[in-house]
Design a protein around this nucleic acid. Structure first.
Lengths: 337, 337
DNA sequence: GTGAAAGCGCTAACAG
DNA sequence: CTGTTAGCGCTTTCAC
């Protein structure tokens, strides 16, 4: 037995038409349930012919004719962050609900690769593109205009020239830090990626704001990659010196996992010695020991909105921004239990 | 500014031909670098026209004409296991290297859904399908014959009627258990999914064999889902009673993460009270505390082989099986350090 | 080295 | 309610 093209002489629409004794148009009407009505008996004959012959419509031909591939493109920066995997899954599910399939494209965190994927997806005539961009940054303007509805998912800056759907990172981070403050901590560190600079990332801005609003002194910052290793290194640095924070807000739970290792190796306990709240709330964060208290992104909702917008939204002149609230999920690392 | 179809009158091949003052055939020859030669100067004119006009070939039309979409399908049972995410990424990368894109299809662990995806991908005329099937089981025979090259990835049973590429689960599990035995453990438990039965899954078979080969008594088994929760529940059961094993072989590191939580809650330490070795070796396993010793799947290599086979293999009558070795990665949970 | 033209399988006017 | 047919954009054979 083989799984190769064995006895697969391709069955076309006209084979079906011949077999059912109708025209090819009627076959189309039956297959697409429109645009013209077909007599019940005729339709049944056609459906039977389709079944008997094992006919499957050629999607490429249809796409060529209609201009729609019923395909969506999803560009993500790398998959090692389980958050992207969760987004990919959620977007795929939302797309499937509408009868669309998803093409994956890994930009490897590289803006050039991202650009190429965009062009490639455009050539494939996908009906929409969803990007979790490397660029939560304004220079997303550098993305080529493909003429295809495109939406940025999970941008953590305020401004983009594209439609975007994103968690309310400021509100979420603010609540997370506030929660730590509520536990009585006065020195609250931050672990985050990026490079700071003038145009603060929302999570960082919120952390700072919450601290200052509470009249506390700015806490120490350790910047490193948005990865487990990055969090590990950042954690090591944060707790190497004499002025250790008693609490840390971590801007992704991947980094928090790394921080856990740093703390574990330093013999520091969570939440006893250090309280931790992390942003993202992937599944992985649920099974750390102790369990991470997180500011959770509404992944399903964000994905559903992205798909909906990309498929249904009317063109307008100004970029739209859809912001959805994050949820503080209290578990153990903050010290509540 | 909008990201909608703005000024996108579609540029076709004949626009380019007109602009460059050549025939459409020549444009094809240039775009595809064949099959006929083109004078250097002419080619340059065409390339220039392409650039100026911003022409991008229509992939659907090409697919219709050539019968090849340069698309691969990847069916996976659910993405909550980071192993599937790693496979998806690796398959996507391997496909990209060959100029193919990947369509994702989540079967949600349901054989019916899996079947539908297979049919849908066939209708999309993908050039190959890679399945990490729900069915590591012989009834994979129930998969429909699509006439498209299809390969099973990561099947953990010996027999399938399809081509397959898989880690050497028996060898890997055997080595993992042997390693535990080498540490002097005499009661080695197993946490695994599935239901046992006559046709043993390879990891279970290997665990049993290694124990018996060492002249030890069979250890306790806890069966539960291949998830963090499943591992947690299994762990709770395994360590509830009086006859606790001193070591556990866990058939996926997701389950090991769950086991860690159960042990953490029970106040049992790893590897002091319980030594652990897990199968899979995803990135997540590296950052547990203490770090998991794992039998690691060669994810990149398996994915590369799957893509290669699906694209290049000649049809044959007997199913082919490609088996690649697992690697024991010694970290802390086994008690080595 | 280049061009003309057929046709991949489908949809949707348009005609009956 | 059903049939005929043009044509989506591309590749490639065949002629020049």
């Amino acid at each position: 037995m083989t799984n190769r093209a064995s006895s697969h002489e391709r069955v076309t629409r006209s084979d079906v038409a011949r077999y059912a004794g109708v025209s090819t148009a009627v076959v189309s009407y039956v297959v697409n349930e429109g645009p013209r009505p077909v007599a019940a008996a005729t339709a049944e004959r056609v459906r039977n012919a389709i079944r008997v012959l094992g006919y499957r419509p050629n999607v490429s031909a249809r796409a060529l004719r209609t201009g729609s591939t019923r395909l969506l493109g999803f560009i993500f920066p790398e998959i090692d962050n389980p958050l992207w995997a969760e987004f990919a899954l959620a977007v795929g599910d939302a797309a499937a609900k509408r009868g669309f399939d998803l093409i994956l494209a890994n930009s490897e965190g590289d803006a050039t690769v991202e650009r190429q994927h965009l062009l490639n997806l455009a050539a494939r005539q996908v009906d929409g593109i969803i990007i979790t961009s490397v660029l939560g940054r304004p220079d997303a303007a550098a993305l080529p205009d493909t003429g295809i509805p495109t939406i940025l998912l999970n941008t953590l800056r305020e401004v983009t020239p594209f439609d975007s759907v994103t968690v309310d990172a400021f509100q979420g981070a603010y609540e997370g830090v506030q929660h730590l403050i509520g536990h009585g901590h006065t020195t609250i560190g931050l672990i985050i990626g990026g490079s700071g600079g003038a145009d603060l990332e929302l999570r960082e801005a919120a952390w700072l704001q919450a601290i200052r609003d509470a009249g506390l002194p700015d806490g120490p910052i350790a910047r490193d990659a948005f990865s487990r290793e990055g969090g590990y290194r950042a954690g090591l640095r944060l707790f190497a010196g004499p002025n250790r924070p008693s609490a840390v807000f971590v801007s992704s739970d991947l980094q928090a996992v790394g921080l856990y290792r740093a703390l574990y190796e330093s013999g520091l306990s969570v939440p006893g010695d250090v309280a931790v709240v992390a942003f993202d709330g992937t599944k992985e964060s649920e099974f750390t020991n102790p369990q991470l208290t997180v500011v959770q992104q509404p992944v399903q909702e964000l994905a559903a909105t992205a798909v909906e917008q990309v498929l249904d939204a009317e063109p307008v002149d100004a970029p739209r921004r859809f912001v959805q609230p994050a949820t503080l999920v209290i578990r153990q690392s903050c010290g509540c239990t």
